[in-house]
Structure formats: C-alpha cells, structure tokens
Write a protein that binds this DNA or RNA. Structure first.
Length: 892
RNA sequence: GGGGGAUUAGCUCAGUUGGUUAGAGCGUCUGCUUGACAUGCAGAAGGUCACUGGUUCGAGUCCAGUAUCUCCCACCA
C-alpha cells in the first residue's frame, strides 16, 4: 500500500541514480529512432546552481524527456566550461590565503593547482544539476579543457590563423586592472555613474593669455594627451589651425587637430585626445598621426610617463585635479552622469588602453550565420529576437580573443628567434623556416577567451575534429535553449562556428527564455541577497515542485518573478497526484486480478454498453489534453502544456470524475466497477506519462507503485500519449454533444451547490430539488443521471416539473433550466425578488446588445453567417430566460 | 542616441488566426476534519483589459500616438 504521505526526498534520491545506472539517459546512434539532440549551456566549472539554471534546464529536460518518450533517439549533452578568468580568480583567492600570488608558483605549477582545484571542487555544479532531475547523458559529459575539446580549439585557431582571419594588433581594448587582462567588448558592463566634468584650461602656445578649455571626465589621463581636438566647422576655434597648446602640469606642447568626431555642442567643443586610453581618441590619433602615450600600469596604477608613478588611478585623479587647481588651470567642475564600464567578472572599473592583442575578423564569419536565420533554416523564438540578432551580426566588430591569464587554452602561436611566426596545433620541435630547434622557439604567453572554446560546443562535444558516429548522427543539434543574455556571447558565435567548421548550422531552433527575478522584479544577485537557492527549494518542496512551478509560471515572452510561495503550486500538485494514486490503488485492490500494467500503453478496451456520459466526457477531455500537450510542446509552449495537464488532472480527473466514479466503484455491478477502474487506470496512466517530462520523480514513483511497469521498467521510456484513435472514439460514442451535456449537468450541480450555500443550508442536510429542464431531451438525460446528481448536490429527491414552481423558494436559472429548493418555513421574498431583478437587468443588458447588433444592417450583411445565427439563437434563449425569471418574480 | 518588451482581478500571470457573458493560481470572504487528498473539498466576491484616437459589422486582440515601468545596444569627451 502506498504511504499516506509522499516523501519526495527519498523518492528523488532513489530514482536519479537508478536512471543513471540503468542507462535511461543514454542512447547510441545505433539505438534507432530519429535523432533529437540538445547541448546544455555549459555552466562555469566554478558555478553553483542558481535559479537561471533551474529554469533553463527545466525547459530543456521537458523537451528532451518528451522527445525520448516519443521514441526519438535522444541525446542531451552535459558539461562545464573552464571559465578562464572566473576560475583563475577563485584559485588566486585561495592562494592569497596562503600569502602567495600566482607568480610565486610560476605558470606550470599554478595551472596544476587549478586542475587540482577542479578535481576537488569542479564537480559541484554537475552534482547539483542531478538534483534537478536533468536527463543528461553523463557518459558523454564534457569539459571545455578536455583533451578532445582542446584539440578542437587549437585546430580552429590554426585554421583561422592560416586563413588570415586571426590577426594581432595594437588596439584599444578593455582592460581589467584587477584581473590583469584584456576583455572582449561584451564582457564589459556599462553602468550609469554619477561623475564630474572637469573643465581645464590649456594655454595656447605663443599667444599670451589665450586658452582653450577642455571638458573631461578622466583628468588622470591628462599626462597621456597628445593633442586637443575641435570640430573643423566650429568658428570659435577656426583661428587655432596650426597652433599648439601647452599641456598643463607637463610642459609638453601638443597640437590642435581638427576632426569631425568632436561635437560642437558638447562641453566647450574642445576635446583632449588621449590615444592610448580611449577608443575614439585612438581613432583620432590614427587619422592625425598622433603619438600614443600609455600612462598606466597593468594593475591600474600610474606609470613613470604620467609623472605620478605608483599612484592608484583614482588617487591620481584627485591629485591631478588638485594640481590643476593649484596651477590655475581648473576652470570649473560640473556634476555629470555618464556610463562607465565594469569587468563582468569582478566589477572593477575597466580602463580603455592601448594593447597588443589577438583578434578574429568576424565579418566573413557572420555572413552565413545571418543568412541562415533570414532564410528560416534556423529559427529564433521568440521571433522578436531575430532583429536583435541581425542588428548585432550586421554591425559585428572584431573579437578580441587573447587574455593575459594562465588558465585556459594557450594561444598556439610560436615565434622563432629567426623572426618567423606561425600557428601550430601541437608544440613544434623545429622552426619550419630556419630549422632551429625548440630552444629558439617561444609560444605566445596568452590564453584564449573562454568563449573561444564554447563557441565550438555543439560539435566539439560530439568528437570533432574526429569524425565520430556521434557527430555524424547527432549534428546538427535540434534545439538550443538559453537565456537571451548570452545571445551574442555564445549563440551568435556558435552559429558562426557551425557554418565555418561544419558547414552547417549548429541547431535548427534557438529558444530564448527570460531571466528569473525576485518578487519585486529585481535581478537576483549576491550583492542584493535576494537570490533563491534551487537546492533549498528542492529540499523544502521537491525538485518536481521546483520544475513544475517554474514551468507553470514562466512565459517565454517575459522574465519570471518568483518567490518561495510559488513552489507550493508544484508541491500541492504532486500531493494531489499522489493521493489520486492512493485512491486508485485502494480500489484496485478490491478487484481481483486488476493490473495497472494492462493500461500502461494505449490498449484500453471498453464495453460501450456500460459507458456513461461522464466516462465519455473524461475520455474526450483526456484525448484533448493529449493533443494539447503535444501541440504545445511542438511550439515550445512549456507553460501552456503545464497548464493543460494541471487543469485536466486536477479539475476534470480528480474534482469531477473521481467524485462521480465513487458511487460506481462502491456499487454491486462488478462489470461496471471493473470498467470504471480500467478507464481510471488508463486515463491516470496518461496523466502520469503526460506529466513525466515536467515532474519526472513523482510520476516514476507512482508508475512503479501502481505497477504500470515491472521493477526494471521506467516511465521514461513509456510512449508519450497521443490520444485515442478515431475508430475507438466513434465506437465509444465520444462526441461534442456528450461534452456539452456533461458540462450543462455540471453547471446544474454547481448551481444547486451555490443555492444551498446562499441559503445557508447545512452540508449534511438532504434537500428536495426541483428542476424545470430547458428542453424535454435534456430532462430525459438528467432523469437518467438522477442518481449521480443526487449524490453531487446531496438531494433526497429530484422532481422534474413541467411548470414553474409556484411556491416562493430560492431559484436559479441555468443552461439546464430553472432549479429551485423548496424550504420549510422562511424564505426572504424581498431578497429573492432583488436577486431576480438583478438577474433580469443583466440579461436585458445582453439582449439589448444583441438586438443592437442584429438591427445593424452592416452586421447582418457583413458578419459570417455562423456568428449571426449564434446571436439569433442567443436572443431566443435570452428571451425565454427573461420570461422565466419574470414569471418567478410574479409568483413571489 | 537607437532598438525591444511590458501595462488584463488585491498580487503573479494566461488569453492561439479579431467573434457568445475575458480565464487560472495565490490572496480575501463563507461553509466543510464527507472513507484519496485540510499540501484538501464546496461556494462567493473581485476586472471601463494603462490612456487617446483609428481600422472593422465587431478590438483585450490589428494600426498610430501618449503615459509609466523595464531591458538591450551605442565612441559625445
């Protein structure tokens, strides 16, 4: 017998290892079925599970489990990303506790240390992912620094290098002084900053008493100025052509240059030009052949050229402002809001600085990736992201891929003492040009951006550059599910890599979902302390609850706001299912030889002679929900699917049908009993299978507990329900009329219950129910259903009357007709009359609206016939209802 | 500066190609320890679908504008 209470902790701890050990997550190219493959967005190896993962992986697992149950040959590849800067930061932090820095260890020892860290702690997130229930194929788990993936990285680099798509150059890059490395443009986060504009006078050389005033937000870069610039069409400064100005504090003379880049309206119309510390200034410098003076060190302190050597850049800013003031150069200070860039890893303010780095030429790579989305070969959902994608791709800039850190794929470029430089996937023994040996060859010290390995993920994980059976069978992958926040970092680059190296798009569909926010709609972050921990939710509510609740509240179009109480939805639903299962089990035990295993597939047989309309209604709704789930998932409408099964299982199955079935399950008629139970077993089995992608644990547990499968079976590989065949639906008499009738009947039951509640009748009190059915046909049907109605509304008798009841009593007008409950003694005629008046007024309002439409010639001539007929029918119905109510009122 | 999104019940959100009386969960109120389930059951209250205009026989749904809130991109020092 099933336990009274469901214990998700024990159940989840049991099934996950069982699935893994039984190879339930594993298919082979030869396993049969058409391929359905997905790669997980690899979390950082330093990461811990957060709500973003929970949402992202729930969506994927729903899709993956659904496809697997549909018989597809399914592969979901898990793995982690070596996360260069993040991981190096973690290990450096640990080292600092020992009072050491990475340079104290040296490169090799440090890298060993990182690997050691990875062995010890790098498994955290993949262990946590298992708690979610992800059906990822752990036999194929990958890490971006694995041998195979590293080989892919080296090959890709060399190919691009040899094609001339990788180049090295001196450009302005984003420099994080804390991490000591260059960052790509999209690794910089811009945030509004309450800063200042300092207005500084630069004396014009050779014109005593004449100045130009520049406005700057970064006075500390002043020692690096090599010009001031004005707009060529600015009459205020036209006379300065050919002039020089004196750079304050330094005594250096720098030219005035004329460049369109300068906005006349901004500040004073004069800009200081610091080509080594600003991208725009760099460009201006290029155009005018200006000197580039870098005034800072790698760690954000000032260097010897600045004249403030060793001073921190922000301290230097103050010092320079102070010195400018003293020297009489400072004109004024204005508060000024601008955007300043921060390192996405450590949030340090980044410096723009001149630096020699490796870049990938992106324009040629972008072309096929743009074309594929434009042609529909690859679709992006929601569709609106397409324009964002195009916009970025069409204005793509070269990708700075070198990082001045140690943890990562070392750049495979070698230089010989002879001056020859080349790229090689393996460490060369000799120089291909002069033949010199290893001792003359040096490798580039930098490593590659982490994304330079993750952009290969969809095929490197399948074995590329080796030609493997996996690669052949599972590439291209089917769906890529990720947050829109890494559309550029990752998705767009994977598209480019897919075309460049595989000649094919890496996936057919890109599914972008929103991010998880807190109850106030704020991003979850460590600093705000508003993060919810998925593991805490799992421990409190279960993984199924986490998954189902997320699925139910997440729309693909928008971000998702969550708080702990949201997970009660999933927990309660799990409990509901559990209790329904207990009910079925209790009843099955009373029937000899009843086996749920007979209902694990689509083999239900029924004797139509024993079927009731409520049975047919349930079967119809079950059929609908099967179709709805498949349709929803085909369109990636995860939420819609969750809602459909939730509503069906709870409302149709439990609230209505189980209650209805109780009478028959306790009745004498053994054949009927058996049929009702088989129907319940069939539909409940469908519910479990439909729900399994969302709630894998509880569905598997019940599947076994009820005995839908043997000990070695699993719901994971049970067929996903498609609904009943047309033949059977016809044989069982499933029709829209049945649907309408049962709904009418239910409205009647609800109506009676409402009447009872309004009249304040004790629940235990059995009533006399009067029904004047809307049509004779309906009356016949209701008479046949009398027993079940009596139970549902606790009526002792039901009297079907041809005429309106004359006695004053609470009544209600429904689709089914007029109902009333005669009460001994008191009836508040005044309240009853008011209720009737209110109802009549409401109906007249509707009638007026319909009359207006029907007398509108435009409506009658232009609206479709069905709509018009509908309105006519409705009018007749309304008129009859109003007449009935008025008769009631008169009788009071 | 450019682009996107949101605005529907007290709260969080559904609402497919325009078509009867706009739905759900939570919360609120009322009554129920009824033989699966109080993590529950039955019932109720609660909405001028942000605003203005337009298209249409008909608009929560399509179009334009306004307001508020958001996100992304961007080199005005």
């Amino acid at each position: 017998m099933m336990d009274k209470h469901y214990d998700p902790k024990a159940v989840e701890a049991k099934w996950y290892p069982w699935w893994e050990q039984h190879g339930c997550f594993h298919d082979e190219p030869a396993s049969g079925g058409s391929p359905y493959s997905v790669v997980i967005p690899p979390p950082n190896v330093t990461g811990i599970l957060h709500m973003g993962h929970a949402l992202n992986e729930t969506i994927q697992d729903v899709l993956v489990r659904w496809h697997r149950m549909r018989g597809d040959n399914t592969l979901w590849i898990p793995g982690t990303d070596h996360a260069g800067i993040a991981t190096q930061n973690v290990v450096e932090k640990a080292l600092r506790k020992e009072g050491k820095r990475r340079h104290d260890l040296g490169r090799e020892a440090f890298i060993d240390r990182v690997w050691e860290w990875r062995r010890q702690y790098g498994g955290t997130i993949v262990r946590q992912q298992r708690c979610l229930g992800n059906s990822t194929d752990w036999q194929r788990e990958r890490f971006t620094m694995d041998e195979g993936l590293s080989e892919a990285v080296a090959k890709v680099f060399c190919d691009l290098y040899d094609k001339g798509l990788i180049y090295r150059g001196n450009y302005i890059v984003n420099w994080c002084p804390r991490c000591g490395t260059a960052l790509a443009d999209d690794e910089v986060e811009h945030e509004p900053n309450e800063g200042h504009l300092w207005y500084v006078r630069y004396p014009v050389v050779g014109r005593e008493g004449e100045y130009v005033t520049v406005a700057t937000t970064r006075p500390e870069t002043l020692p690096g100025d090599t010009a001031v610039a004005v707009n060529p069409n600015d009459p205020r400064y036209a006379h300065l052509r050919g002039c020089k100005v004196l750079l304050p504090l330094t005594g250096r003379e720098i030219p005035v240059v004329f460049d369109d880049y300068v906005e006349k309206e901004f500040g004073t119309g004069v800009v200081k030009i610091t080509p080594a510390h600003d991208a725009n200034d760099f460009a201006v410098g290029q155009r005018h052949g200006l000197e580039q003076v870098n005034v800072m060190n790698d760690d954000g302190t000032m260097n010897a050229l600045s004249g403030y050597e060793g001073m921190d850049r922000f301290a230097c800013r103050e010092a320079i402002v102070e010195d400018l003031k003293k020297g009489g150069y400072l004109v004024k200070i204005e508060p000024y809001q601008n955007q300043i860039g921060h390192c996405y890893r450590c949030h340090t303010v980044v410096d723009s600085r001149l630096s020699k780095q490796w870049f990938v030429r992106m324009k040629p790579l972008a072309k096929p990736a743009i074309e594929a989305v434009r042609s529909g070969e690859v679709t992006i959902l929601p569709k609106r992201w397409e324009s964002v994608y195009f916009n970025w791709m069409e204005n793509i800039r070269d990708w700075c891929i070198s990082r001045q850190i140690w943890w990562g794929h070392r750049i495979p470029v070698y230089t010989c003492a002879c001056g020859h430089e080349w790229a090689s996937p393996t460490a060369p023994e000799t120089c291909p040009k002069c033949g010199a040996g290893k001792e003359s060859i040096t490798q580039d010290p930098d490593v590659l951006d982490t994304w330079f390995s993750s952009w290969l993920w969809p095929f490197s994980t399948l074995g590329w550059p080796k030609k493997t059976a996996d690669l052949d069978f599972y590439y291209p992958t089917a769906d890529l599910v990720t947050g829109a926040d890494i559309l550029f970092f990752w998705v767009a680059r994977m598209m480019m890599a897919g075309f460049e190296f595989m000649g094919k798009a890496p996936f057919r569909n890109i599914i972008l979902h929103g991010i998880v926010r807190d109850a106030q709609g704020r991003k979850m972050s460590k600093s705000l302390g508003n993060s919810l921990d998925p593991l805490e939710i799992i421990s409190q509510y279960s993984a199924d609850a986490l998954r189902f609740s997320l699925a139910l509240i997440t729309s693909m179009e928008t971000d998702t706001k969550v708080d702990m109480s949201k997970f009660e939805i999933g927990r309660n639903f799990g409990t509901k299912l559990w209790n329904a299962a207990r009910f079925l089990q209790m009843n099955a035990e009373k029937l000899d030889g009843f086996r749920f295993a007979d209902y694990a597939g689509d083999g239900l047989t029924l004797d139509p002679a024993l079927l009731h309309d409520d049975d047919r209604h349930l079967l119809l709704k079950a059929d609908h929900v099967c179709a709805a789930m498949n349709a929803a998932l085909e369109r990636y409408r995860i939420q819609e699917g969750a809602l459909a099964i939730y509503d069906f299982a709870w409302t149709d199955f439990c609230d209505w049908y189980l209650e209805y079935a109780k009478a028959d399950l306790n009745a004498e008629d053994a054949a009927r009993r058996r049929q009702v139970l088989s129907l319940l077993a069939d539909v409940y089995g469908k519910i479990l299978r439909l729900l399994h992608p969302y709630m894998p644990f509880v569905t598997e547990e019940i599947w076994h507990q009820l005995g839908y499968c043997g000990e070695e079976g699993t719901i994971m590989r049970a067929p996903f329900p498609k609904g009943y065949s047309a033949d059977r639906k016809a044989a069982w008499g499933l029709s829209e009329e049945v649907l309408t009738y049962v709904e009418t009947k239910r409205e009647l039951i609800t109506g009676v219950r409402a009447l009872r509640a309004e009249a304040g009748l004790q629940p235990a009190l059995a009533i006399r129910l009067l029904v004047r059915a809307a049509t004779p046909e309906l009356e016949t049907k209701l008479r046949a259903d009398e027993a079940s109605i009596k139970v549902a509304v606790r009526a002792e008798t039901i009297e079907f009357l041809a005429n309106d009841p004359e006695t004053p009593m609470p009544t209600k007008l429904l689709r089914a007709g007029l109902i009333g409950i005669p009460l001994e003694g008191l009836i508040d005629t005044k309240a009853e009359a008011e209720k009737l008046d209110k109802e009549i007024t409401k109906l007249r309002g509707f009638l007026k609206g319909i009359d207006a439409k029907l007398s509108n010639e435009a409506f009658v001539s232009k609206a479709p016939a069905a709509i018009i007929q509908n309105q006519r029918d409705r009018k007749v119905e309304l008129e009859a209802q109003i007449a009935t109510l008025e008769a009631r009122k008169a009788a009071l």
